[in-house]
Design a protein around this nucleic acid. Structure first.
Lengths: 321, 321
DNA sequence: TTGTACGCGTTATCAG
DNA sequence: CTGATAACGCGTACAA
């Protein structure tokens, strides 16, 4: 495989000149330039990017840490991030972790090794402190609300969003309300749960563990949720679900009659909730992805909050008593 | 930032020895090894992977070319590919092209530049000939059925799968059948269309352009499809749709009565078709992703075909006349 | 078991 | 406008 030196030799110039031609430096004689281009063609010469990375200390590669690629929630983030990355001529390296700390660390290590210029963490398992300790090797942005951190953060107020949905149901007369989350120990679930519990306390509603449902995220989980709901002692009149897909799955499991007597609020504002007319809380995932990327090039630490909006559709009913 | 040389100096050994320690070479004195490790700790030394890549001519990075990350079809492929890649300690670089040839070329160029070890093409716009010309720079596997190629291929028989679905409808008495595809000029659409046309010819059914619907792929497209269907002169009694999500979107747009008088067959066997009980053709996308990855390390050119299966559910009815 | 010297392919510096 | 030389950080053949 031809290298820069050979090109130089055959063109009868120094490697430096070839390098200048390749990098479009201004002060090169036209004839020399042409000659070099000609030899490059002839030899089918290709610069070795690893050598360039070595000397420049950059790779134009940015890492994305996500647990799964095939969850709509995450694939929308990826879509957004990749779009800007493409525009900015950066490439995206996927770290699909399945929430395995070892894989998350791998991403951080690659930042350390300088094979990545920067890192975006969409969801995590390891501690913030660990992540922060890698900040010395490159910019890191994270999709989470963290106080007093040196990481770039982009976030939404899960607590507020969840509570707002609950309040809306309360105003319509609902008192027995279910709460559906995914991983119980995730940052967002913790916020949502605490919103749920505070809501109950504020309105003097007893907190019933059987109305808190964990590990539901996908469409098919909605069916399982339906089964679980049938087994509760207290029959809730409404439910707030942290994923539209689970909400849709539940909705589709209900009979026509059941649908008219049970209120559902989903989260994310996915296509499917539009189609099924399910009330949901909009989370601008695509835009959040873009912002996560953009923050990486900020010099100072930035915290960006995105607003969520309750989108009222037809899966919520006023409770008659 | 500390480098190997500094470690050597402080440890009182040569760079070679440090390198040996780092790479776990057998013949190193235990004391020396410990001393070196100690200095590495002290200096917080990190090997520069770009230097290693340069010298080894490898990066352990493999590229994936996909048009969009947020289509379930593609995100399932990504999920499968990433899973094995993680196992094999390779990292995945995403080229989200939006079918822009320039972006597809970018991926091929990075293979050429040796920043990628190999490449997986899930869907493409540029010519096979162009792709093949990059084969000299590294292994490439593609999710497509190509005859006489030097690329690794993993594929399904779109023609057969589509025709099988059509025959099934024919046997149940359907004669006016619609056909829904995505990009008309894509390799899979061409096969599907030709299956549709051959089917019509074989059964002496006139081919009506108004029953061929293009550019439908997502859930929300199902609604638009519903609108389009209402405008056709011939009212079809059944439809074959190359995407489950569009099939689901259409299904949900129908009234209860319409659903009982209209047969739908989707493709892919996504969660949503299970939930809605829509008859579909299973495409093992996850497994295909895994195979696409595995083929890269085969020495000889391999062509893997995956079978598709018609999954009979309750969205298809026998036509009474 | 350890060290010397060179090579990987490119860019930066400085001199002319 | 051009070139010689060093440098990026590491691996490895060869010698000791």
């Amino acid at each position: 495989m031809a290298n820069l030196k050979e090109v130089a030799k055959l063109a009868g110039v120094s490697p430096t000149t070839v390098s200048r031609v390749l990098n479009n430096h201004p002060h090169v004689n036209k004839d020399t330039r042409n000659k070099v281009h000609q030899i490059i063609e002839e030899l089918n010469y290709i610069p070795n990017i690893n050598a360039i990375n070595l000397i420049k200390g950059k790779t134009n590669l940015i890492g994305i840490v996500i647990p799964f690629s095939n969850y709509p929630y995450f694939s929308q983030l990826i879509q957004g991030i990749s779009e800007v990355a493409t525009q900015k001529n950066k490439k995206v390296v996927l770290f699909q972790t399945s929430y395995d700390s070892k894989q998350e660390l791998e991403a951080l290590e690659m930042l350390k090794l300088k094979q990545l210029d920067s890192l975006i963490i969409c969801s995590r398992n390891i501690s913030i402190a660990t992540i922060e300790s890698y900040l010395q090797y490159g910019p890191i942005s994270i999709f989470e609300n963290i106080k007093n951190t040196t990481l770039h953060t982009t976030y939404i107020d899960h607590y507020h969003a969840f509570k707002h949905a609950l309040q809306y149901l309360y105003k319509l007369g609902h008192r027995d309300i279910g709460c559906v989350i995914n991983r119980r120990n995730s940052s967002s679930s913790i916020q949502r749960l605490s919103a749920y519990k505070d809501f109950c306390l504020e309105h003097h509603i007893p907190i019933k563990e059987e109305l808190i449902f964990e590990n539901y995220a996908l469409l098919e989980d909605g069916k399982a949720l339906y089964e679980s709901l049938k087994k509760t002692k207290t029959i809730p009149s409404a439910i707030v679900i942290s994923s539209d897909h689970t909400a849709a799955g539940l909705y589709l499991s209900l009979s026509e009659t059941e649908r008219k007597n049970f209120s559902i609020i989903g989260f994310e504002n996915q296509e499917i909730s539009t189609l099924l007319n399910i009330t949901t809380v909009d989370i601008p995932l695509h835009t959040i992805g873009i912002q996560l990327f953009k923050q990486l090039s900020n010099n100072s630490i930035t915290q960006t909050k995105f607003d969520t909006h309750l989108i009222k559709r037809h899966s919520v009913f006023k409770l008659k008593d």
